[in-house]
């Protein structure tokens, strides 16, 4: 996946290694300006199956991983991740490069993508109908996504839903799925063939690991999906199960809150979101059991908008 640039191109004392992949309408170049074969391997593990982007064409963004001088706060070798020469996060120890790489790609999409309405949501699809899982961090979106993948849903995104402005369809953005704490083992058990990254432990965030999306989802990244169902999940350990329909106006206002660029899109944002809301059924889901939640979503996905249940 990675290739060296011109053998004479050395930055920071290391030969620059570079890879470019296409991810659902975006081209992302990853430039390693640090000699860390293990890191290269980690990235390749997650992104190796993505379609390669023409290395000579200009990518939408170049993500560069550069060494940083040691600071009093970071006694070990540090790294900083840049998106087109802007670094949204502080330098971190080298072993944290992968999570910060993922966070930086997310930051780029949130900050610079203007041709779509951006919602903080996960999206999966079944039989041509997209299910949007909208909720704050910790609501269980990624775990639900992984569990729905195990039920043969197609994965579109676990973090950033991209709604195209002209037709309101959901554009896939199948990046590695971010799993935290107990969810890592739950998913590893549920999907024994899943490609999981190393685990990254941090006192503030707990343990994080990334799951490579299924190959079929990556290959279908050019195929948008039609929105059909919006679920607002809330996970609470040992909680019961409650599924309630919610009115479209309420769903609309909640989705505005989850959007990164609704305000900047003005009337186009209003029309795009209103059309999406009108096309969908909306539910709030409070759950403590993953099986209950997945079963409910699967049933709703099959019957939403009166489409007959598929045997």
């Amino acid at each position: 996946m990675f290739a060296s640039l011109d053998p004479n191109t050395f930055l920071h004392g290391a030969c620059v290694r570079r890879a470019a992949v296409g991810i659902g309408g975006f081209s992302i170049a990853i430039s390693l300006e640090i000699a860390r074969p293990d890191l290269e391997q980690q990235i390749e593990h997650l992104y190796g199956v993505y379609p390669r982007h023409d290395p000579d064409a200009l990518p939408d963004v170049t993500i560069s991983l550069r060494p940083q001088n040691r600071t009093p706060m970071l006694f070990r070798p540090a790294i900083r991740v840049f998106a087109n020469d802007e670094a949204p996060y502080q330098a971190v120890p080298e072993r944290w490069a992968l999570p910060v790489l993922e966070a930086t790609i997310n930051w780029f999409v949130w900050s610079y993508v203007a041709r779509v309405l951006l919602l903080h949501a996960a999206v999966v699809e079944l039989d041509g109908r997209a299910v949007i899982l909208s909720g704050p961090t910790g609501a269980g979106k990624s775990t639900l996504c992984a569990a729905l993948i195990a039920r043969r849903f197609r994965f579109l995104t676990d973090e950033i839903a991209l709604v195209t402005l002209n037709d309101g369809h959901l554009q896939p953005h199948p990046r590695p799925i971010s799993l935290k704490n107990d969810a890592i083992d739950i998913v590893a058990k549920m999907l024994p063939d899943a490609h999981l990254s190393d685990r990254f432990s941090n006192a503030a965030k707990g343990t994080v690991a990334f799951m490579r999306p299924p190959r079929q989802s990556i290959e279908a990244a050019g195929e948008p999906a039609r929105p059909a169902l919006v679920i607002f999940p809330t996970y609470e350990p040992k909680a019961g199960f409650e599924l309630k329909p919610i009115e479209r106006s309420q769903a609309f206002m909640r989705l505005i809150e989850s959007s990164a660029n609704y305000l900047t899109l003005l009337a186009t944002g209003f029309e795009t979101l209103a059309n999406l809301v009108e096309a969908c059924d909306h539910y709030s889901l409070h759950y403590g059991s993953l099986d209950d939640a997945v079963g409910a979503i699967e049933s709703l996905a099959r019957v939403s908008r009166g489409i007959p249940k598929v045997a």
């Binding site: 009115e247 106006s249 809301v277």
Partner: peptide, 18 residues
């Protein structure tokens, strides 16, 4: 103004204020 009415509730977008 742009607006939608759903189940008796209205959402209204004001292009002057955003």
């Amino acid at each position: 103004l742009k607006w939608r009415c759903w189940e008796g509730d209205y959402v209204v977008f004001n292009p002057l204020s955003g």
